[in-house]
Each structure stands twice: as structure tokens, then as C-alpha cells.
């Protein structure tokens, strides 16, 4: 039996820093090779679901999904299904079709003319036709930024789970999932001061994600904007609240943080319990609240 080794790697992917930590009874060189393959899974998800990459499934759909049905990769189809399902459960509070407003505020790049950015489309206009075919009932732009990062983490962890490792952690800029390490500890950033960590936490589920309405500055520089848009008003949310969600999978944790930030509070318990998830809210006053209650 070879000695147990641990390695830690970090690559810039998904617009953030993706860190992979592996522990296993094999050489460091082997662990590095396996980490490399896990990064490759994340790169595949990035290629399919990037809003920035003009060849991605997402960009193809945004260009002509309203003209004719398009075939997408099964992974993209799965993520769209999950997103629409969560939109339904949150009565539209979670909505991946708010991209035009993100483009206008400078948080996403502009591929097309301003005049073609139709904002009327909503999540109900996404038609999942089966057999990987997707169409839009009217012109709209989807952005999977609020859910694909978690999915990418899941894909990397699924691959790593086949290798007989004693432990693995994939952390994509705060969206993370652990493998085989019960009682792992993490730290959550302070919503009042994002370059400090405020709260230590135990991983109540294998996956954790945190979203907050701070941190992102609009390209215009005039006004602080956040990447979380309120779907009803179309305006960026400005509160100093952060939401962390512990879930079985990272796609759920990632999406549920946005759902909790955006949905009316009366829906939280139900949406979280349906996925056996736990939310930890940190407020600007320094309060820490857990849901479901």
C-alpha cells in the first residue's frame, strides 16, 4: 500500500478560483494527474454554459432559441431543467432569464445590439421539449451563472468519487463540495467586510454555497451593483445579507442561495426542505439565522 498523500491545486476557471484538494494512498504525481482531469470536467461545463463564450450552448440558445428548437448537451439540458423547476417552486423569484438586465448594468458582456435585447421573456418561456431539444417561446437571454458553477463542482466530484480517494474537496470560489470527509470545517466570509472571514461552520451536508448582495461593482463604476437582480423590480439587490446553503449537491446549494435571497420568506422552508437543505443567513447586524425553522 503506497503512502497517503495530499495535494492542493488551484486554477482560474468559471470566472473565479477553483481549488481542488485530494487525499489518497497514491503518489503525488498520480494525484496531480487526477486533479488535472477533474479540472478538465469543470472546463467542459464552462465551455457549454458560459454566457461569455459565443460557441457555448447558452450563447447558441440566446441567439436563436426563439427561432427554432436547438439540441443542447445533456448536461446543459439537466441544468435548464433544474433551473426551471426551481423557478416554478419559488413562483418565479429564481429566474435565469434576467440576463438582459445584467448586460445593461455591465455585469455581463454584450454580444448583440441593444435593440435586440428583449426583456419580456421569462422562465415560463423556456420550453424543454425532451430529447435534449430546447426552444424559447419568445426572444430571451438565459444566464446559468447562478447555477452552473455548482453543477461544475458536482461533475468534478462525481469523477473524483470513482477513484477510491480517501478525501476530496472542490471549491469554486466558495461553491464547494466535499467527498468522504465527515465533519469538515469551513469558514464563511463576513457580509460586512468581504475580505475577512466571519463565521466558522461545519459542513452540515456535502455541498455548500454562499451568495450575497455585495462584492460586485458595476462596470459603470458609478453605482454599486450586485449580480443578484430582483426579478420583480429588475433592480440589483443592495442589502448586506449573505446566504449560505448546505445541500447534498452543489448545484442545489448554488441555486438555493439565490432562491432564498430572492423568494418571499414564506417559501423558504418548503423549498429548502424539499431538497433536504439548510440555509444559514448572516445579516449586516451580525445576526446568524438558520432555516428551515
Amino acid at each position: 500500500m503506497p503512502a497517503t498523500n495530499t495535494i492542493q491545486r488551484c486554477q482560474p476557471l468559471l470566472g473565479t478560483f477553483v481549488e481542488i484538494t485530494l487525499t489518497g494512498a497514491r503518489s503525488e504525481a498520480k494525484l496531480h494527474e487526477q486533479a488535472g482531469k477533474a479540472f478538465e470536467m469543470i472546463r467542459s461545463v464552462q465551455r457549454m454554459m458560459s454566457f461569455h463564450d459565443t460557441d457555448s450552448d447558452v450563447s447558441r440558445l440566446n441567439r436563436c432559441g426563439h427561432v427554432a428548437p436547438l439540441q443542447v448537451h445533456p448536461w446543459t439540458y439537466h441544468v435548464l431543467e433544474q433551473a426551471v423547476q426551481l423557478s416554478r417552486e419559488t413562483e418565479g423569484a429564481f429566474d435565469i432569464t434576467v440576463a438582459p438586465r445584467l448586460v445593461r448594468s455591465g455585469l455581463l458582456p454584450r454580444h448583440t445590439q441593444v435593440s435586440s435585447l428583449v426583456e419580456a421573456g421569462r422562465w415560463e418561456d423556456i420550453a424543454l421539449l425532451g430529447g435534449r431539444a430546447v426552444s424559447f417561446r419568445q426572444p430571451l437571454q438565459v444566464d446559468l451563472g447562478g447555477i452552473a458553477k455548482g453543477f461544475a463542482v458536482d461533475k468534478a466530484v462525481e469523477y473524483l468519487s470513482t477513484l477510491g480517494l480517501s478525501g476530496a474537496i472542490v471549491n469554486a470560489g466558495g461553491d464547494m463540495r466535499v467527498l468522504g470527509q465527515a465533519d469538515s470545517r469551513v469558514a464563511i466570509r463576513d457580509p460586512r467586510d468581504p475580505h475577512r472571514v466571519a463565521v466558522p461552520a461545519v459542513m452540515l451536508r456535502p455541498a455548500l454555497a454562499t451568495s450575497a448582495a455585495y462584492f460586485v461593482k458595476a462596470a459603470s463604476g458609478l453605482q454599486k451593483a450586485s449580480a443578484i437582480m430582483h426579478p420583480r423590480t429588475g433592480k440589483p439587490m443592495k442589502s448586506n445579507l449573505s446566504v449560505s446553503v448546505f445541500a447534498k449537491t452543489c448545484i442545489e446549494a448554488d441555486a438555493l442561495t439565490k432562491a432564498v435571497l430572492l423568494a418571499p420568506q414564506k417559501l423558504w422552508n418548503q423549498v429548502l426542505a424539499a431538497r433536504d437543505s439548510v440555509a444559514l443567513l448572516l445579516t449586516k447586524q451580525g445576526e446568524q439565522v438558520m432555516f428551515p425553522v
Binding site: T16, G173, G174, I188, L208
Partner: peptide, 8 residues
Amino acid sequence: NISGATIS
């Protein structure tokens, strides 16, 4: 491991 809003 730190969780928080994504660092660009």
C-alpha cells in the same frame, strides 16, 4: 476552505 460571494 472559505465560502463567500465569488471572488473574481
